[in-house]
């Protein structure tokens, strides 16, 4: 027996909102059900577990706030001084978590399965940042959130992880139970006037 899997929205976002005609020109919205996640959380100072973590995952766990490092199988995003979000293909989630947990049997570093905690949405296009800015500052810095960086903040009144992947390309992760709310919120703000 094998239970069937289902995406968070259960619909193909690729087509739906764009066809609805609301999305400004050149914008695209896509559900990223392919993104898997492991939540890494240290019970001790990060310095004591980084090396072991790097070895188990094959990626350098970043020590600098907001930074992301990319490895062959996964990327690691700094979340807190002791926690990282590891993004990987969904099918690699279990194995990566097991490798970390095997390396740290005393649980000084813990890898929790996290793929289904977050729903990932990709927002592309020149107006993408303006859409996000309807739900919050995104960044109060003069130059905004730099490309290649990530942060946690509030968007549309709910907590979100925002990753500025490339110029005009954003990945937003929100807690799964709020998916429908968030997509509804996006629909309500998408036709904002330029400015």
């Amino acid at each position: 027996m094998k239970l069937q899997l289902q995406s968070s929205l259960g619909v193909d976002l690729d087509a739906a909102p764009n066809e609805a005609g609301g999305l400004p020109n050149g914008m695209a919205l896509r559900e990223r059900a392919d993104v898997g996640c492991v939540f890494l959380n240290a019970a001790v100072n990060a310095a004591e577990v980084i090396e072991g973590g790097n070895e188990a995952l094959g990626v350098q766990l970043p020590a600098r706030p907001g930074s992301i490092s990319r490895g062959p199988r996964c990327s690691a995003i700094w979340l807190t001084p002791r926690a990282w979000l590891v993004q990987c293909p969904v099918d690699d989630e279990l194995e990566l978590a097991s490798r970390v947990n095997a390396a740290f049997a005393d649980k000084r570093l813990h890898a929790a399965l996290f793929t289904d905690y977050l729903y990932w949405l990709e927002l592309c296009g020149e107006g993408a940042e303006a859409i996000l800015q309807q739900g919050g500052f995104v960044s109060l810095e003069r130059d905004g959130l730099a490309v290649g960086h990530a942060k946690r903040t509030l968007v549309g009144n709910i907590p979100a992880v925002i990753i500025h992947e490339r110029k005009f390309e954003w990945l937003v992760g929100i807690e799964r139970s709020r998916t429908k709310y968030f997509v509804g919120w996006l629909n309500s703000v998408r036709d904002a006037p330029a400015g």
Partner: peptide, 8 residues
């Protein structure tokens, strides 16, 4: 002081 971000 931890993440260095200006927070509202």
């Amino acid at each position: 002081p931890y993440c260095g971000e200006l927070r509202t």
